[in-house]
Every structure is written in C-alpha cells, then in structure tokens.
Design a protein around this nucleic acid. Structure first.
Lengths: 123, 123, 123, 123
DNA sequence: GTGGTCTAGACCACT
DNA sequence: GTGGTCTAGACCACG
C-alpha cells in the first residue's frame, strides 16, 4: 500500500479508494486478509482511527467483511469484485469525459474504453 | 454559470474551478467582467462569502483582478490564459492516467493528447 | 501630484496624505489654490467623489479651506502649517521606531531626528 | 501575542503582520506551534474567522504550515525565516525613507541600516 | 451596485 | 481540541 494524500478530500476516503483500487487490480484477491488497522496506520502514517473509518466504509459497501478476532477480509463474492472494478473504471472514464467536455473538448466514452482494451490484455 | 456541487471538495474550490474552465473554453474572454459576487451567489445558491472566497483564490493566482467598485475581471494577459488552459488539460489527463494505472491499466499520456487533438480543432 | 496607491488603505486617505506632504515640503504654499476636484481626479485617475472625500477630510482638519465658487486653498495660518509638518515627521519617525522595536531592534527617536537634521538644511 | 489594532488596515493583515514580527524577533522559533485559531481569537478579542483568515495568508506565504488536527506551526525552513526577517526590515526601512522623501528630507537607506547594525548586535 | 471585511454561530474531518 | 468550510447578516469604501 502506498498512498499519496491529497488535501482536498478526507483522508479516510482516499484510503478506502486506494484499497478498492488494490482489489480491482488484483493486489488483494477474493477472501484475502487486508492489513490490520494498526499495521496499515503505521505504514501510511495516519491515525488508526482514520484507517478504521476507511475500513468501516468498505464494510458498509460490502467490499470487506470482518472475522472477529482475525481481521478484515476481501469479500468472497466474485460478482462484487467484478462490479467493483467496473464501477471504478466507469467512474474514472466518465469523470474524464465530463471534465474534458467542461473544457470544450468533445470525446466519446467508447473511444476511450476501446483504447483501454486495445492496449491492455486484461478484462 | 452552472455548477453541480460534489461533496468531496470545498464548494469554493469547485466554484474557482468552474470559472477557470469557463475561461479556458472561452465563455469568458480576456478582460471580460465576471459575475458579481452577489449575483453569482444568488445564481448558484451559495453564500456570497463562499463566492468571495473562490474569487480571492482566483485573484491570488492571477486569473482574475479587481477594479475597485466595479467588479472582478478576467486577466488581460493572454499568456496567463493559455497557461491556464494547458494546466487544466494537463491536470485532467495526468489524473486520468494515474487513476487508470492504479487500476492496473497502462495508457500513455501522449496517446490521449493525440486523441484529443484529432477529434478537436482547437488548441 | 503623483500618487502610488496602496491597496491596504482607503484611497481618499492616501490622497489626503499626499496633499499634506506636498504642503509640508512646500509644493503648495500658504494660501495657494490646490487643484480642483475634477482636475485632480483626472490627473490621478480616480473618481471625483474620492478626491472630494479627501478634500473634505483636509477641510475638517483645517488644512484646507473653501472659497465658494473659487476652489480650495491651503490654510493661511502659518502655525497650522508648521504643526502639520511637525506632526507628519513625528508620525513617521515614531512609526519607524515602533515597527523596528517590534522586530527586536532598539533605536532612539533622538538618534533619528539628529540624523535628519544633519543631512538636511531645512527645518 | 499582544496586538494594538489600527483602523487603517484590515485586522487580519495586522494579525498576520504581528505573527511575522514575532517570528522575526524570535518569539516563535522554527517548527514551534503558534496559538490555535480559537485561542488567539479569544486572547485578542476578534472572531475566530478573522484569525483563520490571517493564518491562511501566512500559510499561503509559506511562513506557517498546518498539521491536520494538531494546529499551525512555524515553517521549518531556516532560509524562509531569514528571508522573512530581511523582508520585514527592508519594508520598514524603505517605507521610512520614502515617506521622509515625500516630506522633502533626503536620507540614505544605507545610513539607516548602518545605524541599526551599530546599535544592535543581532543580524 | 461592487468588492472587502467582520461577527456570530454552526458542522465536519482528523488527532 | 484543532483547522476548514459554510451560512446569515452587517457595515464600509468606492464608483
């Protein structure tokens, strides 16, 4: 886990996002244990409460689940993970298209997604 | 001016950003007057202080300047405006590339900028 | 009259100050006519109301007086002018001493006034 | 912190200035915490927002920096502090020379800075 | 009418 | 408790 914090958004949301992305790109697999709150807090130098807040958010969204006394784990629902990935890609692509349009550039979402598929083998 | 507010960032920064984009795509020209603090506040339904905060930021960055008792105006420096536009495009493209990379996709900044130039006539 | 405006203070006070200084250094003599409101406004590129405000302030302080239909004139009271000059020098010297003290420098008012008298012939 | 407010300038700028001077004369050292927004507001009897405005200005100039949830701190860059001090002295001396010249007195900046160095041991 | 400053009071994110 | 943001409402200087 490596996170560069951006002051404009709550840190806990940035952490949650980073975890989601790590799952999406396969750094954490289905059912795998994620770092403990304290461990991650130490690593990225934030307060444990902040990590806890991030994990809670992910649990609320069904991305993580807790095994009492053992830690937090990535969901074991494959659909959930596929959806997560699609959601993330979608959000980023749509945001890009929207922002470029606000600058007066026309660009189609399809053009972008095709481009991504061409240059990358994975789904 | 039409702004959809997003809870993830301070409103005043979103306003500042919207003005910058409006300038970049030519909705406000060099030296043109921007809406008065109160007028814009009414239109987008925020407190005048919030608009004031946004304008102050833009003034600080040299994008706007104030004529006492007359209002705020877009900078008359053409270079400043060109730079502004380039900065905005760059920021958006780089952010897209970074976020897609965090998801495990490889994509080159150049591929994107070429794509943009192909599909749009403007600089 | 040449004035460089400083945004941190009301313009009309800066104008009033500039007039006082011009009188103090002899650019306007006792009883001499000062520029008309409109004339000065044109010259220094401010709104006539602003110059008017400045003149009112000076009249209130007894530095200028008005001859109806003829314009505004420097007071004819020599004591008033001497006092004005002393006041100005005093204010500036004291302000300097105070500000330097706030920075941790010790300096005596006398040292400064002696220095000024040495290097200048005039009273 | 003790501040006497002068009606001629915005309070928030006077606060910012007072902090800068306190740093320049060593009352706040490198990396030291400055009073919290609320604390200082109480002490000098202004609204917390006004202090916040002053601090924001100092942060923007790189004199202070914020540790989230902990407070505001003096920059840890020694050069920045040296520069700050030099800037303040310079501004005051130049302003003095300019104002005295406007009154018809000739005085050299060097004469003054020499005088200051003679009577004070510090840089 | 225009921007600039200020107060009072509130809520949020973070430690 | 700490900074950051926001609203509501006010007054001032300037044109």
């Amino acid at each position: 886990m490596k996170i560069e914090f951006d002051e404009s958004k709550p840190i806990y949301l940035q952490i949650a996002d980073a975890i989601k992305k790590a799952i999406a790109r396969g750094d954490f697999s289905m059912g795998e244990k994620v770092p403990s709150v304290r461990e991650l807090a130490l690593e990225i130098k934030v307060n444990p409460n902040t990590v806890q807040h991030a994990y809670q958010e992910l649990i609320r969204e069904g991305v993580l689940f807790t095994k009492r006394g053992q830690g937090n784990f990535v969901t074991e629902d494959p659909k959930k993970i596929r959806d997560l990935k699609m959601e993330l890609v979608n959000r980023i692509v749509e945001n890009f298209v929207k922002e470029m349009e606000e600058l007066g550039y026309r660009i189609k979402k399809d053009t972008l997604t095709n481009l991504l598929e061409e240059e990358n083998d994975r789904g």
